[in-house]
Design a binder for these strands. Structure first.
Lengths: 196, 196, 196, 196
DNA sequence: AATGAATGAGCATTCATTCAT
DNA sequence: TATGAATGAATGCTCATTCAT
């Protein structure tokens, strides 16, 4: 009970601190202070600093995965499912700027820091996109010449970059609806003009 | 002359080192050794470590900007221009994995490290996309309801994420042509099936 | 009863752990694990880490003292008594390599760690040598110009160094008998050749 | 020139600090302060803390080796050579209490800390004893049934323990002459009374 | 301009000790 | 008595930056 509580507190504190300072500028003592535990306590729950990063990343993404899957399963049309994915991702990142930051920065760092990067939660997350596209292709809604594994990267990258801007204080900010709508248009209908 | 030479050598060395180790794990002495100069010499050309990062970033991007602009100006059709941008970016990143890495990692770090992130070369680079789309809209080739400033982020993000995979050794690698073709299809024609 | 049992278990565990890792590299949790008690339990029986060291040292030496005194008291001839001391010490150290290690390392550390080093069991132990020599001098068996208090150090040092080698894995190992015989020869008869 | 100077200063400071506090209680910053250099400077000359210990040990012993060999080579009689070794060792340790401490403590630690302990300066040092004894045996001055490799340990141990007492402030102190004379008597003539 | 030896602030991690249960 | 989670002081080592040459 208490242990689980501490674990959660540390993860949550680390998310906040990593978001604010970035992984390398974050000090363990910052996380400890934010979590209101002693420095040493952190090492009762995590092996080292990178382990905290990995945990934050995996656990936070797991939450979006569950959330997204739930919303998507309630909908049958692949087009709608894709829209839901897009809007959910953007909403989530706009609401959880800390998580967005951590994903922005650490997804890139992690390639170097975390050895085996295959079977991670991140891949599970973007595979949701691939699944939706595949289903759409089976139902002849989406073009068969689109490779789901490239498309998933393309869409994720687009969403990621758009939401990145929300963490840059000086930029013009678009709303989730506006950005989501734009991305949906581009991906689903393409950019070409004049069509029925 | 000699000074300029050293400057170039250091930038080039730094790109290599940052790419290999990431900004925080890169040591000034690594860069100095790679550039075959003394550690102290670096401080004759740059103020500090972040200044090197900023310079690497700006100068490398400037090179792509010049390169891309040249190729695009030779073509009139916005669709073709967009294709050129896409293929050029991907080719460049596949060829210059170091630069790709630096962009991948440092673009995100830099939000925190580099104070004023508005008038940078990076923005100049993605504004090329916005310009092409704007031109396309003027020529009634692209839909008017697409906002160029969101579209530029969307496309850049897509390209960035797709090329990120090339630096992850364990992933399946797509060719530049395949990836470029897929992105063009999605962005220009959309993903919907059965159209004229 | 139970308390005494725990005390013994901890002392015994500490001897093993100190021997294996040395005082500074030994962790309280190592000792606790070896003794199969909780870390905190150790502090019910000892004040702190140094207190454990001191206790280990004193109690282990006390055991040799009792053992040695028993064997010596059964013998009248000081020459034989000295031989018994020599052989007993070497046998004991060869059998209890842990104790040997603790004596080797900690006897030296302790000078710094343990404030008042006079009335310790260690002094009681080497005083056995002094007593034997004194008796031998009274019985005109040993030379009167030997100072028992220097001789006790000399002999103990010799025994200590010879047994130290048994804990260095790569060295050539002599048997207890061989080493004991050599030390007896040197100390009792001296190294000069050609005598009746 | 300067580099060599720093190296010497650090070795000398480390000897002092190790002697005063022992290896584990000595802080790098203590050594740095004593040597009047910055903490980081130490790492320009040594790889790590243990490397300093090893260097101190080896370099200090090397000095005694040179010193002792010189004195011994001037003398032909093995008995005299042995006397010289004994007195020289004791004098050296009484004068250099820091070195004595370092030898006392670190010789034992090092078994655990320093991996390959065979070809060290220490072995070179005590082999001087073995050589003297071997020569004496060839010249039929020393008994042939004494094994030089055991005898060298025996004598070194005796000297070591006797000089250890000089670093324990509360003990009665013997003079070098007295202690040396006693050890010579015991080792060369044995302890038996009434002989020609 | 160029060097590289020297600096010293900074930080992840460990572990003896405590104390609520 | 006994536990073991929690504490937080302590420290070896790194590396960006400086500066005498």
């Amino acid at each position: 009970m208490k242990a689980a509580n501490k674990h959660v507190k540390i993860i949550s504190a680390a998310t906040k601190v990593f978001a604010k300072k970035g992984f390398f500028n974050a000090r363990i003592s910052d996380i400890a202070k934010e979590a209101k535990v002693a420095d040493g306590t952190i090492y009762l729950y995590f092996n080292n600093k990178i382990d905290i990063l990995r945990s934050v990343f995996e656990e936070e993404i797991d939450t979006i995965i569950q959330h997204t899957r739930k919303l998507i399963s309630a909908e049958g049309d692949p087009r709608k499912k894709l829209e839901i994915f897009i809007v959910t991702h953007l909403s989530y990142m706009k609401k959880n700027k800390n998580l967005a930051e951590v994903m922005q920065i650490e997804l890139r760092q992690s390639t170097k820091l975390i050895k085996d990067y295959r079977n991670t939660k991140f891949n599970e997350y973007i595979d949701i996109i691939a699944e939706i596209i595949y289903q759409g292709q089976q139902q002849k809604i989406f073009r068969k010449d689109i490779l789901p594994n490239i498309a998933k990267r393309t869409l994720f990258g687009a969403l990621d970059e758009v939401s990145r801007v929300w963490n840059i204080s000086l930029e013009t900010h678009y709303s989730v609806e506006e950005a989501g709508c734009q991305i949906i248009k581009m991906f689903i209908f393409g950019m070409l003009d004049s069509r029925g």
